[in-house]
């Protein structure tokens, strides 16, 4: 496979055009390179601060390594996962090299994926969920009526309802900062550039190069996640470099926007409706009087 096709395969759709924006900035997003994450949670804190997010209650110690946040939620839009493994960081390069120890601590900052095919946006009955001119997906809190449909539609378990508030909330990719040409709070705060913000095309190129470098260094576990326009959501506006299988980080291995099946879903619902009508009609027609 030539270099060229490899690059061609990693361009994500300019989804703004599909939405109907005639004139728009390039599609912006996140590349989260977990191989340089140090687990400082600056992103979690910066996100909470900028977006003025309330605390998740109750505060508790989970026993899950350094992760006491637990998950993305209505009030936590960045979540750093910690995974302790009895495994060398990289393959040994020869006799006498132990492959950089026999323990590794994987850390990864998770976030809304800003999917190309966003199930949350498809199913929202109020039009509260919206595609922005940057290609990101945001909830309009003045429209959302808290029906919760998007919560069950998201294949990544990102969205959730804030109970006392009644509405759903999630990462906005700092839309309010983007319109002023500012970097999202998490990317700005990240001290190692594990979270990189920019035009997706650039980020994808950088990510492919990073994977190549890591492989050359013997970190053969490195792989991208969410970068592929051929996947079940046509790629993510926030994609990742992971060092293990996605499910190890709590990410679905092959997520899908179920609206893809909607034609089949409606067909079966229509067939069942016709069956009901015909069945009841037959129940009347079969009468012997």
């Amino acid at each position: 496979m030539s270099e060229r096709t490899a690059e061609a395969a990693t361009r994500l759709p300019q989804v703004q055009e599909e939405t109907g924006y005639a004139d728009h900035p390039p599609r912006m997003g996140f590349f989260t390179d977990t191989s340089v994450c140090i687990g400082c949670k600056a992103c979690e804190v910066a996100c909470k601060e900028w977006n003025q997010l309330p605390a998740d209650d109750p505060l508790e110690f989970t026993g899950m390594s350094f992760d006491n946040t637990g998950q993305l939620s209505a009030s936590t839009w960045r979540h750093v996962a910690f995974i302790e493994q009895r495994k060398p960081m990289r393959a040994p390069t020869g006799a006498g090299d132990d492959g950089a120890g026999d323990l590794r601590l994987l850390m990864a900052s998770d976030v809304c994926k800003h999917c190309t095919d966003a199930a949350c946006l498809d199913v929202c009955p109020t039009g509260s969920l919206l595609r922005t001119e940057f290609g990101t997906v945001v909830v309009q809190e003045d429209v959302c009526n808290g029906c919760g449909y998007c919560v069950s539609a998201c294949p990544y378990g990102v969205l959730d309802k804030r109970e006392r508030d009644g509405r759903v909330w999630k990462c906005t990719l700092c839309y309010d900062r983007l319109v002023d040409d500012l970097t999202p709070a998490c990317a700005k705060a990240c001290p190692t550039e594990s979270i990189q913000y920019g035009p997706l095309d650039e980020l994808l190129e950088r990510a492919a190069a990073r994977v190549r470098d890591l492989h050359e260094d013997g970190v053969t576990d490195a792989r991208l996640y969410g970068h592929d326009p051929a996947d079940g959501v046509r790629g993510n506006g926030a994609f990742f470099l992971l060092l293990d299988r996605p499910e190890v980080y709590g990410l679905p291995p092959a997520p899908m926007d179920t609206t893809r099946d909607l034609p089949s879903i409606w067909r079966h619902a229509a067939a069942a409706a016709l069956t009901l009508a015909a069945g009841v009609a037959a129940a009347f027609a079969l009468e012997r009087r």
Binding site: Q71, A81, S152, P252
Partner: peptide
Amino acid sequence: YYDRPILK
């Protein structure tokens, strides 16, 4: 991930 749910 620690047997936690992926979906909400």
